Simulated scan of single mutants.
Amino acid sequence: MDLAHHKDIQDYIRKVCTQVRFHDVHHDIKLELTAHIQEIVEEYLQQGLSEKEAVKQALAQMGDADIIGKQLDLVHKPKPEWTILLLSFLFVNIGLLAMYFIQKQSLLIYDSILFEKSLLYSLMSLIFIIGLYFFDYRKLERFSKHFYIGTLLILIFTVFWGIQVKGSSSWLAIGPFIVNVVAVIPFLFIAALAGIFNKWDW
């Protein structure tokens, strides 16, 4: 007996899922709960109960949907990779410390504010990383082709109309910042192609 589309069961499962903030596991939770509820319903049906009463008893046996949802939310709560975060923080600070001593010793005559720029870029990167932590960037996957085309257009624009440094037109001015587009482009292409080929039927 297929009870996957039974209204009461669907309402119960939907109520459970509203308590689970990690939406990627909703599908698996729905499948698991549906199968479990169906097993209980079949047991009650074998005892002679009607389908309506069997579903009612099965949902009562499952327990309060809000409580189950909160318990599942704790189980499926994404955990930060603290080791990676701490190592990244350590390496960034080592790099900043190196930039500070390089600037203090005047080892780079052509760049007198190397440490300040490095510190600014590090803070910008930190803000960007925090933003990615709270934003599910996988939602951008459907825009992968647009992202690829946009990246290609930026590269072409930079090559022909970018700022020349030592004979290479690989720099682009973005407000007060000058970005080495050619150095960044490969990573953008990798991200775009990863989204394009993710669902490729190999």
Rank of each mutant, 00 (worst) to 15 (best):
D2I: 11
L3C: 04
H6V: 05
K7M: 01
D11R: 03
I13S: 05
V20P: 04
K30C: 05
E32T: 13
A35W: 10
H36S: 05
I37L: 10
I37N: 13
Y44N: 14
Q47G: 10
Q47D: 15
S50E: 11
E51P: 13
K52Y: 13
V55W: 02
A60Y: 05
Q71M: 14
D73M: 10
D73T: 13
P78Q: 09
W82D: 05
T83I: 03
T83N: 01
L87S: 07
L87Y: 07
F91A: 02
V92D: 13
N93L: 03
N93R: 02
G95P: 11
G95W: 04
L97E: 05
A98L: 12
M99N: 04
Y100S: 02
K104P: 10
S106M: 08
S106G: 14
S106E: 15
I109G: 07
Y110H: 07
Y110M: 06
D111C: 11
I113C: 01
K117P: 07
K117W: 08
S118F: 04
S122F: 09
G131N: 15
L132P: 05
L132A: 05
F134H: 12
R138H: 04
L140W: 06
F143D: 00
I149H: 04
G150E: 00
L152Y: 06
L153Q: 00
V165Y: 03
S168W: 06
S169I: 04
I174M: 01
I178H: 09
I178Q: 14
V184G: 07
F189H: 00
A191G: 12
A192V: 08
A194R: 02
A194N: 10
F197Y: 15
